[in-house]
Design a binder for these strands. Structure first.
Lengths: 160, 160
DNA sequence: CTCCTATATAGTAGCTACTCCTATCTGTCA
DNA sequence: TGACAGATAGGAGTAGCTACTATATAGGAG
């Protein structure tokens, strides 16, 4: 088995949508077509899009959608735990649908964010001092460097 | 010994400055007064300032300094390894002078970034798949949550 | 099914955090 | 100590949000 994360089955996808609808109701949020479309788009991609990227992807099917709605919606998604902001150092915020345990590698050249999964990183132990003093909501291992494609000198254009 | 990082002695500070001057020369960069002042300021603080914060701190002593210079300079510092961009999820870029091994905890409420140090996090093992495919320049453990002060309902104003 | 209302959206304006540009200045080397 | 590549100040420009307001609609009550 590879360390790299793999795609979801259609059944898993549907289960996620169902969960999302329930989660919205639970949080007192309406399940609007825009909200659902944005969540689906995020769920169906592994490129950890920015709000802008999601907007561009959705615009053909949703010509009246506004970028502001995408921005508001992804922030709402993070608030109800249906998405996460990918950790990074600078540039536009990038999101993922917060699926199974996985970690992120970000290429500093092409800005690609690549999922991988390494079991030992799933449950790293916090030092007792920190665990006692703070409420830790999220703990992640984050890697930065040059990806395979950029190492070969290939041009990967991800951002317009 | 505490898990939380502690301050530098004056001798260590001077040694760092000396190293910095050498590092600039090595990289073919001039040691301008502004550059040195910005590096000193970054070295002397543990609040992981943004460019804006550094600018505000330096303005009294350097009234003609421009924000653009601070921005350019901190980026230059990261390029020569004299500073690092603190990993985070959104908001302004925050910097540290990249001292000894340590990790970051960021409070999602007050935006404070707190250093801590946990030996096992210093040299986490990369999965072979990742190490083989990518050039990993930086690997960090990043924690997010609510800090002790915010838990007590105290208002910590860090950003204007 | 229909109405009602709190919530969401589209469009626009405004703001923050850079990033680029150009004229001027200055460390550094010869 | 002069020359100049490289750096800075100041301002203009741009990306990426964030706030505002009028309109529209999801979803519960009747």
């Amino acid at each position: 088995m590879s360390y790299f994360a793999n795609k979801m089955s259609p059944a898993e996808f549907d289960a996620k949508i169902h969960w999302f609808v329930g989660r919205c109701r639970e949080a007192g949020l309406r399940v609007t077509p825009q909200r659902l479309a944005i969540y689906k788009e995020l769920l169906g991609t592994d490129e950890h899009p920015s709000a802008e990227m999601l907007y561009e992807k959705l615009k053909p099917a949703w010509p009246t959608l506004s970028l502001d709605t995408v921005n508001r919606t992804v922030l709402t998604l993070t608030e109800i735990g249906a998405a996460f902001i990918v950790e990074g150092s600078g540039g536009a915020r990038r999101f993922d649908a917060g699926l199974e345990h996985h970690q992120h590698f970000k290429c500093v050249k092409c800005e690609r964010i690549i999922d991988f999964h390494h079991e030992p990183f799933d449950n790293i132990e916090l030092p007792p001092d920190v665990a006692g003093k703070f409420t830790v909501l999220r703990k992640t291992v984050y890697l930065e460097g040059i990806c395979d494609l950029c190492k070969q000198g290939m041009k990967v254009v991800q951002r317009s």
